Every structure is written in C-alpha cells, then in structure tokens.
Amino acid sequence: MDHKQELQNPMASADADMPLYGSLGMTFMEFPYAPSVKQTDADVVVSGVPFDMATSGRSGARFGPQGIRSASANLIWEGARWPWDFALDDHLKVADVGNVNFKHGEPQTLVDNLQRHILQIMESGKKSLTFGGDHFITLPILRSVAKIHGPVCLVHVDAHTDTYSGGSKYDHGTFLHHAVEEGLVDDKHSVQIGIRTNYSKDAHGFEVLDAAWVGDHGPHEVLKHIKEKVGDRPVYVTFDIDGLDPAFAPGTGTPVSGGLTMDTALKVIRGLQGLNLVGMDVVEVAPAYDHADITSLAGATLALDFLYVLAHNKIHHS
C-alpha cells in the first residue's frame, strides 16, 4: 500500500465511495491519525465532511476540512497555547479519523454515513469535532447526538438563523427548522449568536443575541446568557464561520457584513468552560474565497480553543 492509500479514510460503506477531495493530506494539529473510531482511545474524534451540495449561494465548503487542517500547521508550535496555562496533549487525547465518505452526487449517502459515524463516536463515550462542509451537515450530526444525549442545547454562532421552513430536502438554511421539528434540539434552552439577517420573530423559539447586541454588550454578557440558558444540560456548539465579520472570514459562501470579531468569538468559545459539552462543528469555510488562509486559520483556531475548553473541563472534573 502506498502512502496516499494509507491516508485514504476507510469510512466507506457499500453505498458510498471516496468523494472528490476526500483524501487526507494531513491531520488537524498533526494529531494521530486513526483508521476508525473503534481503533482509537482518544477523548475527542476529529472528522471532516467535504460536502457542499446543500449550499444556496457560493459553493466551495467541500474544501473546508482540507483548509482547516492545513491552516492548523500555524498553531502546532506552541506547547501551551496562549492564554491557557497547560499543554493540551498532557490532558486530552485527540485523534483525526479523516473524512466521512459518501457517493458523489448522492447526498443521502452522506446523510446515512455521517449519522452512522457520529453515532459510533457518541456510543463510544467520545466527543466529536467536525469540520464542514456546509451547514446542512449539522442536521445528520444532531440526529446521532440526540440518540445518545437526548435533545441538546445548541450554542449556534451564525449570520443566519437557519430556521427557514422553505428550501429543498438538502438545504444548509433549513437544518435547524428540521432539527427542532424532529426533537433533536431543545430550542427553549439554546442561544443563537451573531444573527444579522431577517427571520420570522413570531414563534421563534431560540433566544437570539444578534450581532449588533453582541457588539454593544460584549462576550461577558453573551456568556452570561448562554450559561443561564443551558445550565447543566448537554450542549452542542455549531459555528458557522460566517458568524464572523467578513473582515475576519471572507472565505465563506454567504458573507454578511457587521459580524463578530475574532476576539469576541474566541472569548465566547473559551468562556464555555464548565458546560456539559458533547461536540462541536465548524462549517462553511470555503478556502477558494479566502485571502492568505485567514478564514481557514480562524476555523482552526476556534476548534483548537474548543479542545482546550474540553481539556480544562476534564482537568477540573476528574
């Protein structure tokens, strides 16, 4: 077997093949590569989902996992990442299992394989860190997360609510509408952050901290609202990179001006310490629209700080 074949992820099933751009060039943060969830004792499993067939605007998020992993090379030199006072590897085991396979042009194979994959992670007692791909991928993820943890509280950073009832069966703007209808998310104990596009406020079950409110009140107040809402319930974090202002994340399919700064976003992620976190995804990174890899770097940095939060929680609850 040659080197390229060794890096191909074997998460294929009878109804799926290796998608375009599905090979694994490097792992996130150079964490150990694991051929499957069952073949690692890691606390957290990193997965990529190179899927953007549910986009309504500019495609290209299929390159997100590749871009985020590549940009993470800029972060690996720091033993104990600022502002943390410990080295991640000393307290948290992380493995990258590569990309979820699906049959190109057949979205349902992505749904089936991603649900199967995330369920395997959840059943093993591990936590998931997933790189999209467009935001549709969060719906299959939540289906599997909810099977183990029940309806989860969502901390959702985005320019859009993604609760729109229209659209097709596979649509990155409707995933949360379906998640609520299917009982996967506890909307009364969830928070949406950074919203700055139109949505129907009538019967909107989520608390919305829109981008202007966040800019006026800052991350401390955002975290206060999050912690009051979720309490000790299971929490899943979904971070659409377009929640950031395009100045910090131009490489995305639906950029909207007036978003969060990177400083605010990082302070919110770091402030999730103590919550019952079960997983996170970073979606909608589209490197083709990027400049100097700053959007991919933003996604990698947010993901890395989430891992530090998990390590902090493990240290203080062990």
Rank of each mutant, 00 (worst) to 15 (best):
D2V: 02
N9G: 14
A12N: 11
S13E: 13
D15G: 09
D15W: 11
L20D: 08
G22C: 07
S23P: 01
S23L: 08
L24G: 09
G25A: 14
M26S: 15
M26R: 14
Q39V: 04
D43G: 01
V46P: 03
S59A: 13
I68A: 00
S70F: 04
A71E: 01
N74R: 04
L75N: 02
W77C: 10
A80Q: 04
W82T: 13
D85Y: 00
L92P: 02
A95T: 00
N101T: 08
F102M: 00
Q108T: 06
L110P: 02
D112W: 01
L119V: 08
I121K: 03
G125Y: 04
S128G: 00
L129G: 03
T130S: 11
I137A: 08
L139F: 12
P140V: 11
L142F: 06
L142E: 10
R143I: 05
V145Y: 00
H149V: 14
P151Y: 08
V152G: 06
V155P: 10
V155L: 12
H156V: 14
A159L: 10
H160T: 14
T161Y: 06
S165E: 15
S168E: 12
G173N: 10
G173H: 15
G173K: 05
L184V: 10
D187G: 13
H189V: 01
Q192L: 06
G194K: 05
G194D: 02
G194F: 10
I195Q: 08
N198V: 14
E207I: 15
A212E: 12
V214F: 05
H217S: 08
V222C: 14
E228G: 15
V230G: 13
V230Y: 12
V237G: 05
L244E: 11
P250T: 13
P250V: 14
G258M: 10
L260S: 14
M262C: 12
T264L: 04
I269W: 12
G271H: 04
L272P: 07
G274L: 07
L277Y: 03
L277A: 01
V285D: 05
P287E: 10
D290L: 06
D290T: 00
S296W: 13
L297Y: 15
T301L: 03
T301M: 04
L304M: 12
L304G: 02
A311H: 03
H312D: 09
N313Q: 02
K314V: 00
